[in-house]
Structures are given as structure tokens and as C-alpha cells.
């Protein structure tokens, strides 16, 4: 029994689930659930709908190319049944799945690198720019605890340059 992929969200369509639409040129569109089918009927592009796999791949939010995906690929030649092969395959599934999960985690970690620093930086800017909505500027001038301390950088090189210009 073949597990197909949903045309819209690329999730697996298990037997007995979903609906398939056959266009007059014999192209088959399989959908995992009515949500995907309805979105297709509304002529939405899966690449532009955020929750689909196509969108996530396009925006490199998920791991796209990896050797573990090769095992899941559709093969058109049916494999002749071999008991040992089937046993080995079943054993391998667990192992490959574990590898894939760790790789995906790594990919996610790499992508999220620097996210915290960025968020903090943005929060600091937000605080500086809109603290006046919460506290009046006159109060702020008295109480320094509500604002972030100003970082002072000494500008010495510029002063020297100025001297040179005068000469």
C-alpha cells in the first residue's frame, strides 16, 4: 500500500483518508483533509500559504536537502519481496528516523542562532522609543531606573583629527 503526499501541504495521505481530484488531463491531486481541498478550490498557491511544507521549504525554514529524504522517495519499480531485506528495512527505519530528527534539530538551531540577541536589541530600541507612552518625560528625568543606562564611548581619534585640520 502506497502512502501518497498531499498536493497542498505535502503531508502523508494514509489509505482511506482525504479526497482525490482527477483533472481532465488525468493529473491526480491528492489531499490529506478537507482543509487542503478547500484551499485548493480557492485557488491558493501552496507556496504562499504559510503553514504548508512548500512555503517552509521555499523560505528555508525546514531542512530541504538531506540524504535521509532519499529513502522516502517514490520509486516506480516495485521491489521483489525478500524476507531479509524487509527485516533490515524495518530495522533501518528507526535508525534513519533518529538521524533525521537530530539533523532537523541542528538545522533549527543553526537557523535560530542570533535570534535572542536580535530580540533583545529590538526590545531595547522599543523601550527607548516608546517609554514616553508609559511615563512622562519629566518623571523619567528624575528617575533613571526606568531607562537603560547610556553607554558612553570615548571619541579621541576625532579630536586629534581636528587638530590636524587646524594646522
Amino acid at each position: 500500500m502506497r502512502l501518497e503526499k498531499c498536493w497542498f501541504c505535502s503531508s502523508t495521505v494514509y489509505p482511506g483518508h482525504g479526497i482525490q481530484f482527477v483533472r481532465n488531463d488525468a493529473k491526480i491531486f491528492r489531499f490529506c483533509r478537507s482543509k487542503c481541498h478547500k484551499n485548493f478550490k480557492m485557488k491558493r498557491n501552496p507556496r504562499k500559504v504559510k503553514w504548508t511544507k512548500a512555503y517552509r521549504r521555499l523560505h528555508s525554514k525546514d531542512m530541504t536537502q538531506d540524504s535521509t529524504f532519499e529513502f522516502e522517495r517514490k520509486r516506480n519499480r516495485p521491489e521483489r519481496y525478500d524476507r531479509n531485506l524487509a527485516e533490515n528495512t524495518l530495522k533501518a527505519i528507526k535508525k534513519i528516523d533518529k538521524i533525521r530528527v537530530t539533523r532537523e534539530e541542528r538545522h533549527h538551531k543553526l537557523r535560530m542562532k542570533g535570534k535572542k540577541a536580535k530580540e533583545q536589541k529590538e526590545a531595547a530600541i522599543e523601550l527607548e522609543q516608546s517609554i514616553h507612552l508609559v511615563k512622562a518625560p519629566s518623571v523619567l528625568a528624575e528617575d533613571q531606573s526606568l531607562t537603560l543606562p547610556k553607554i558612553k564611548v570615548k571619541v579621541q581619534a576625532q579630536a586629534e583629527e581636528n587638530h590636524a585640520m587646524e594646522e
Partner: peptide, 14 residues
């Protein structure tokens, strides 16, 4: 749409 033996459904253009 018409149900198939496995419980999924199929429909056509016309």
C-alpha cells in the same frame, strides 16, 4: 465525489 473501497473519495472535473 464518490467513496472508494478504502474510504477515500474521488471526484472529476466534469
Amino acid at each position: 465525489q464518490r467513496g472508494r473501497v478504502d474510504g477515500s473519495e474521488v471526484k472529476f472535473d466534469d
